[in-house]
Simulated assay, not measured.
Amino acid sequence: MKFIHAADLHLDTPFISINNFSEKLQSQLKKSTYTAADKVFETAIKEQVDFIILAGDVFDNTERSLNAQMYLKNKFDELNKYNIKVYMIYGNHDYYRNAFSVIDFPNNVTVFSDEITTEKLITKDGLSVGITGFSYYRNHVTDDMVSNYPTRSTFDYQIGILHAGIGDNNYAPFTVNELLTKGYNYWALGHIHKREILNRDPYVVYPGDTQGRNQNELGEKGFYLINVEGNVSKLTFVPSSVYIWKNAEINASENSTLNDLTDKISDLLSENSLLTLNITNAQRLNEEVIKSIDRGDVLNQFAKTSNSAILYKIYLKFSRNQEHTKIDQKYWDDSASDIFDLDDIKDMDNKLYSEDIIRDHINDPGFLDHIKEMTKNNINKKYIGD
């Protein structure tokens, strides 16, 4: 038996901060989630798998476009010709609505409802397989849904599909031990965009998303091809990223010119990468160089090239005079906990916080640390030379 486990395709991801790129490049970026999805379906046909599992957030937004729906319908029709089934759940981004989709998928596709159910199939090599899951019915699912999953039945192989975060009370919270008590052979997880194997016997797996969507989603993205022989599951990671997000760092010196910096940046760029560059000790740079970077001159210069390597953003990192650091740290420690309150940030604009993209960004574990770092950096920049 063979199957594919993919999650978080996020079709129609808008991508942000790409307005300075050429129209061609902007178009390619916006198509990249589709191109990555193509890899999933092409691999399924090439490997002659029995079925595909799509573990939530197939669409980037619950207001899924007609284009995205038609794309999937056409792909599912093609899979049907090869007798490949699809088992699909909706997650927090594309949560389930009765009769919402205007397009009906072909009969080889099972979309789980908001009720936990188990689907059954017989594979090409005669294995009986049970697949259990549910779709989100609202943006947040705070209930312990795993407690309602049935324990292992008499199937030769049983799979649980779950779009959730460990201990995350907004997204069907669970623990690995709770999953293991069900006795399943494989847990196909979605929601977390980082590839991670939480347990190996049985497998509890996040494949991550199929295409990185922002500068925090670093490295190669893809999905898993699972080959089952004698109840032993063998996983193979299949890359699908069109563009790969990367971070790099340059340490500034007093003699650094724009020419020096552009040469160093060129050396760091690699094919089909989106590079976020940090220039540390930026206080050493000449004021005119800083102004040029702040104006976006360097970004725009690289955006004009036809190279497939992309300079996405430049962050100037300023350090304070060492004599002031100890004094400043005391005031920072005294005030930071009051100023950087996550609940206060959420309450600043309830309407904005209701938007998925804003809410997900604020709820990211690294959000507060990023805000603190940016604040410190702005303070350091303001008091250069003091």
Rank of each mutant, 00 (worst) to 15 (best):
F59T: 00
D38W: 03
L72E: 05
K313G: 03
I89G: 03
S308H: 10
V111S: 06
N214R: 02
K31M: 02
G133M: 06
P365W: 11
N185W: 08
N255W: 00
Q26R: 11
L274P: 01
A7E: 07
L189T: 01
E323S: 13
V129F: 07
I358D: 13
R195P: 02
E220F: 06
N61L: 03
L179A: 06
V109C: 05
I279L: 06
A44C: 03
T118A: 07
R295Y: 15
I244E: 10
A282T: 01
I293V: 01
F367Q: 02
L269V: 12
L127K: 15
E373W: 10
R138F: 03
N92Y: 09
T43K: 11
T257S: 15
M88P: 04
T43G: 01
L258C: 05
G366K: 09
L72N: 01
Q69A: 09
K317R: 14
L66R: 09
N281L: 10
L368G: 07
N169H: 15
F3Q: 02
R200I: 14
A37H: 08
D60G: 07
Y149K: 10
T35D: 00
L9Y: 07
F174H: 07
T280R: 07
L274T: 00
N92L: 05
Y224C: 07
F59L: 03
Q28L: 14
I339D: 10
K376F: 13
V298C: 00
A164G: 05
S273R: 10
D294L: 13
V205K: 12
Y90Q: 10
F105R: 06
V232L: 12
K326L: 11
K264N: 08
S337K: 13
H361L: 15
V111A: 08
D8I: 05
E196A: 09
I290Q: 11
K326E: 13
F302E: 02
S266F: 14
K120D: 09
I4N: 02
K182P: 04
D349N: 14
Y383R: 09
K85Q: 13
P106E: 04
L225Q: 03
K326N: 13
S32Q: 05
D347A: 15
R64C: 06
I265C: 05
R359N: 13
S113L: 09
L268M: 14
F174N: 02
N74G: 03
L54C: 09
K31Y: 00
V49M: 03
N19S: 14
D77Y: 01
M374T: 12
R195F: 02
M374R: 15
K124V: 04
S135T: 07
K73L: 08
V86F: 06
A55E: 00
V242G: 10
N83S: 11
A303R: 04
S101Y: 11
A252R: 05
S17C: 09
H5E: 01
N92V: 04
H5W: 06
K317A: 02
I52F: 01
M145V: 15
I314C: 08
S22D: 00
